[in-house]
Amino acid sequence: MSTFSANKPARAPERPWFSSGPTSKRPGWSVSALTGAPVGRSNRSKVTVARLNQAIDLTRSILQIPADYHVLVMPASDTGAFEAAMWNLLGERKAQLLAFESFGQLWADDAVNHLKLDCEVLSAPYGQLPDLSQIDPQADLVFPWNGTTSGVCVPNSDFLDGHRGLVLCDATSAAFCMELPWQKLDVVTFSFQKALGGEAGFGVLVLSPKAIDRLNTWDSGRPIPKVLRLKAKGPNNTQIADMKIIGGDAINTYSFLVIEDYLDALRWASLEGGLEGLINRCNRNFNTLREWVEATPWIDFVAEVEDQRSTTSLCLKFVDPAVQAQPAEVQAKLAAKIGSLLEIEGVAFDVTGYRAAPPGLRIWCGCTVDADDIDSLLPWLEWAYAEALAALEVA
Rank of each mutant, 00 (worst) to 15 (best):
L215F: 13
P130E: 07
P130A: 03
S5D: 14
L180V: 14
G366C: 12
L341D: 12
E343S: 13
L207K: 10
F100N: 04
L97K: 00
G198N: 08
V142E: 01
I338A: 12
L314H: 01
E345Y: 03
D186T: 04
R281I: 14
W364Q: 10
C367Y: 04
A391I: 03
E14H: 00
Y354L: 05
D161Q: 13
W182P: 00
E294I: 10
S376G: 00
T296L: 02
E291C: 11
D170S: 07
V73W: 07
R11H: 07
Q54L: 11
K226Y: 05
G127I: 01
S45L: 03
K226P: 01
T35N: 15
W87Q: 09
K226W: 06
V394I: 15
R355P: 02
A265R: 03
G91S: 09
S32M: 11
F4K: 00
W107H: 11
A357W: 10
A99N: 03
L271A: 08
N156I: 04
N236E: 15
P379Q: 09
H114G: 00
K94Y: 09
F192D: 06
A391H: 06
P22M: 02
D307I: 07
S376Q: 04
C367P: 15
G277Y: 08
R290I: 00
V323R: 02
T352R: 13
W298N: 02
I56F: 04
G203F: 02
S270C: 14
A390P: 00
N146S: 12
S19W: 02
C169I: 10
R164Q: 14
E306K: 14
A124Q: 05
R355H: 11
L168S: 09
V394K: 10
F190E: 06
S24N: 08
G127R: 02
N88L: 00
K94C: 02
L115I: 06
D261Y: 06
F256P: 00
